Simulated scan of single mutants.
Amino acid sequence: MTSALTKIKIFLEMIRFEHTLFALPYAYLGAFLASGGVPSFRDFIFITLAMVGARTAAMSLNRLIDRHIDALNPRTRNRALPRGLIKVSEVYIYTVLSLLLFFWAAANLKPLALKLLPLALFVLVIYSYTKRFTWACHLVLGLALSFAPLGSFVGIEGAIPRPAYFLAAGVLFWVAGFDIIYALQDAEFDRQQGLYSIPSRFGIEKALKIARGFHFLTIIFFLLAGIGFGLGFFYYFGVIATAALLLYEHWLVKPTDLSRVNTAFNNVNMIISVLMFGVTVIDLLI
C-alpha cells in the first residue's frame, strides 16, 4: 500500500497536478456563464472530472513523449521518468485511466461534448510534438487550455455563444504568453537540440516582446468577452487587476535576469486564473 501511494505521489508531482489551477478556474468560469449563475451540482462535478481527466492525460503524455529530451536537459533531467522513479508502463496506465475519466465525464454532459472530444484529444496529443517542428508550440498549448471555458459551454449548453470565443482567445494568448516566458529557461538547450520555441527562434529579448504582445491581446479579448456577456463592474475590475498582474509578471523577468521566471510562471498566473473566476462569479451573483 505504501509503495502504491508513493508511486501515486511521484506521478502527481511529475505531472505538476497543482497546475490544474491554471485551467480549472476557467472551466468553472465558463460553467457559471453557461448556466447564467451557479451550475447544477451534476454539471459542476462532471466538468471538474472532465478537466482533471483531460489535463492529467495531457501532462502524462507530455512526460512520456518528452522523456528522452527531458533526460538531456539539465533543468528537467531530475524528473521522475528520466530518473527511473516511475516506470513508463505505469505512466501509460495512468494515462489510459485519465482518458477513460475524460470520456466518462464528457459522456455525462451534453451530447456535443462527446462528439467534439476527439478534437480536444487531437490538440492535447499534438502539443507534445509541436516543439519538434514549429515555434508556434506556445499557441498550441494556449489553444489546448482555451478549451477549458469552451468545454464548459459545450457540456452545459450544448453550444458555444460568440462571446465565449473571445474568452477562449483571451485564455489562449494568456497561456501562450506565459509559456514563452517559461521557455526562456530552455532557449539555448532548444537551439542545441534543434527544438522549436519562440525564445530559441527569436532570442530572449524579442521573445519577451512577443509575450507582452500576447498578454496585451489577452486583456483585449477579456474586455470583449465582458462586453459580449454583459458583465459589470466586478468583472472589469478583475480584468484591470489581471492587466496589473501581467505587467508585474513582465517586470519580474528581464532579458539579463531569468532568476524569477518560476515566480512569474507559477504564482502570478495562478492568481490571475483564480481572480478571473472569482470576479466573474461575483458579477453574476450580485
Rank of each mutant, 00 (worst) to 15 (best):
R201D: 03
R201V: 07
F202S: 05
F202H: 10
G203D: 11
G203V: 08
G203T: 04
I204A: 07
A207E: 04
A207R: 03
L208G: 00
L208I: 13
L208Y: 01
K209C: 00
I210H: 09
R212E: 09
G213N: 05
H215E: 12
H215T: 03
F216V: 02
F216R: 07
T218G: 09
I219K: 07
I219A: 13
I220L: 14
F222S: 01
L223Y: 11
L223P: 00
L223F: 11
L223M: 09
L224K: 00
L224R: 01
I227G: 10
I227W: 15
G228N: 09
F229I: 04
G230C: 10
G230W: 06
G230A: 04
G230E: 06
G232R: 10
F233E: 01
F237K: 01
F237A: 13
A241P: 00
A243T: 01
L245Q: 14
L245M: 14
L246N: 04
L247R: 13
L247H: 03
L247S: 07
Y248I: 13
W251R: 14
L252H: 10
V253Q: 05
V253C: 12
V253K: 04
K254Q: 13
K254E: 10
P255G: 09
T256N: 15
D257N: 11
D257T: 02
D257Q: 05
D257F: 08
L258S: 04
S259P: 01
R260E: 12
V261L: 12
V261M: 13
V261R: 08
A264K: 05
A264E: 05
A264Y: 01
N266R: 15
N266L: 15
N267T: 14
V268T: 15
N269V: 13
M270K: 15
I271R: 09
I272E: 11
